[in-house]
Simulated assay, not measured.
Amino acid sequence: MPPTDASTGAGATPVADPSGTVTGTENTDCQDTLDLRLPDELIALIAEQDGQMSAAHGPDSARHAIASPNPTALIEHDLLDNVGEWGPVTTPSGVFHLVPVRIQRDLTLISRWMNDPAVALFWELAGPEAVTADHLRPQLDGDGRSVPCLGVLDGTPMSYWEIYRADLDPLARHYPARPHDTGIHLLIGGVANRGRGLGTTLLQAVADLVLDHRPQCARVVAEPDLRNTPSVSAFLSAGFRFSAEVDLPDKRAALMIRDRALRTVL
């Protein structure tokens, strides 16, 4: 999964291909410690790789008016607690809904966003639709540890998100990951939606959705490019704290963490 992060004021959307080392010091307000215990879901996933998934839970289930083609999105206990069923949330900017991507429906729109020069600078997915499709398919056909979504605001698709298990991602090799850490990647699609604080509003809403619907998740994490000052600022304004600087192959990132324990005071 290529490197990514939030496109906010400047309209830039960073990368997140974790394969560097963490440098800097942790915030002493909420110390990060390494927990080497394998998550229960990962143990269960290994045990069930013989394909014990009900055929009744195939893609386009009648339970979903808008559903991801990824069958894992319909598993009773998937790795991200059924992102597609989290439902809409009311924000100061309107009613917002994460809708799992369907390539047949959404590829042209997402590819157009990826070809915006401000976005391409960080996501590095400019080019024909096949480039974007090659980025989406491993997530949609994978084990459910990353779910690509459209962000729909008042009925209009306006952003692209990846909600992923940071503790099961290569990123976990480069920071003191904890079981159920959940990561966020974001880009704001339209130029008109950038530079007016919308990134902060949506980051706070999505982080709240994660914490509301993933009771075992104690932290939401992100890794915006340090050069993308508006993005880092948006995460800070959305209740994330700066934890450390992380050296990745394509960027030096700011490891941002939003703690469940501090949710009521931020």
Rank of each mutant, 00 (worst) to 15 (best):
R165N: 07
V101R: 05
G195L: 04
W86I: 11
R102K: 13
P138Q: 00
E124L: 13
M158F: 10
T132R: 08
I103F: 07
L187M: 15
N82C: 09
Q139F: 07
V152K: 09
Q139H: 10
Y175C: 15
G151F: 07
V131L: 09
I184R: 06
G87H: 10
T91G: 02
I75T: 02
V191S: 05
P117G: 12
A177G: 06
D78N: 13
W86K: 00
L153A: 02
P100C: 11
A120P: 12
L209W: 11
N193F: 07
D141L: 08
L150Y: 10
N115W: 11
A133C: 05
Y160V: 00
P117A: 08
L125I: 04
V99Y: 12
V99F: 03
L80F: 15
A177R: 05
R214G: 01
A207C: 02
T90L: 11
A205I: 03
A172K: 09
P170R: 00
T108H: 08
V147N: 01
D116H: 15
D181M: 07
L80R: 06
L125G: 05
T201V: 15
G84V: 04
S111L: 11
C149R: 05
A118G: 03
D208V: 10
T201I: 14
W86Q: 06
G199K: 06
M114S: 13
G144H: 03
L186P: 01
G94L: 14
A130W: 03
L107R: 05
E124Y: 07
R137S: 14
A177W: 05
R194W: 01
V147T: 15
R196H: 12
M114I: 02
L136D: 00
I163Q: 04
A207W: 13
L168R: 05
L121D: 12
E162D: 12
Q104C: 15
V83T: 03
N82L: 08
D167I: 00
W86L: 12
A192Q: 10
M158G: 02
R194A: 13
G94C: 15
G127N: 12
A133F: 02
P179Q: 09
D154V: 04
P215R: 08
W123S: 05
G94D: 11
L107A: 07
A172Q: 04
G190I: 12
Q216H: 14
D143G: 04
